[in-house]
Write a protein that binds this DNA or RNA. Structure first.
Lengths: 126, 126
DNA sequence: GCGATGATTCGATAATTCTGGAAATATCGT
DNA sequence: ACGATATTTCCAGAATTATCGAATCATCGC
């Protein structure tokens, strides 16, 4: 992974609606979720949702697959892991001892957490 | 960690110069790096560098500490780990079996990788 | 082929973010 | 207190990004 790709992926996730979409897809797992299902859960207008899905796709974070009339989206876990690795690459100059506290906290963790919230809708910034 | 914080952190990293700064600080480890040292390595004009450092700090990804005339910055590994956890939270609905391929790739990895490149300077977008 | 359903593209508008020079601030050594 | 060094703040211009209605495209069932 190079810096450019990483920036693109981070940028794709750095938006409330898109992060919610992505997390929904991470939760859904390999089976994925149809655009309609996402729209319903997140209450995002179709054109906006489409815009954000395209953005996530452009970044390579999710993939699309037609299923009859529906377009089913699913998280690309490879891409995410690549990003996570990139972020911690060469951590502490490779000095494992200095890095102890960092490595202590596992990055992939199953949470028992609650439902997803829809991102605050039609909220204007600032 | 909540969605808002995650978006802020991701947004802070979703910029070429800032990502380069952050990676430099990750590599530097707890000792950190002075603003001047960062500027020199990345060849970013002082005012721009300051802007980006402030952004990373606002997001809680790095911390600042005065050391005589220098301001020394260092990565906050707690914040990063929190973010990583958030991103993979409730992965595959908590079904470990479905998640096998995801968990297979460790997220924190020591790379033997080469030097950091400075972000393409004064490059205008599009 | 038609109407209905599911979703994307287009386009205009509005808001945010990045950039870097010049001026201001902080600290040090003398 | 002064000059030098290290960095930040202020500012305005330039570029990017988000929003969502209306129009369009794709697929299905009949």
């Amino acid at each position: 992974m190079n810096a450019g790709d990483a920036v693109e992926r981070l940028g794709a996730l750095a938006q409330e609606t898109r992060l919610a979409i992505y997390r929904l897809l991470v939760e859904a797992g390999p089976a994925g979720l149809a655009a309609g299902a996402i729209a319903e859960r997140l209450e995002v207008p179709p054109s906006s949702l489409s815009f954000h899905l395209a953005e996530l796709r452009r970044a390579g974070l999710i993939s699309q697959q037609r299923e009859s009339r529906s377009l089913v989206y699913s998280a690309d876990f490879r891409a995410m892991n690549g990003l996570l690795s990139y972020l911690s690459e060469n951590c502490c100059g490779g000095d494992r001892a200095a890095c102890a506290p960092v490595l202590a906290a596992p990055s992939i963790r199953q949470s028992k957490g609650g439902r997803h919230e829809a991102p605050a809708r039609t909220r204007r910034r600032r």
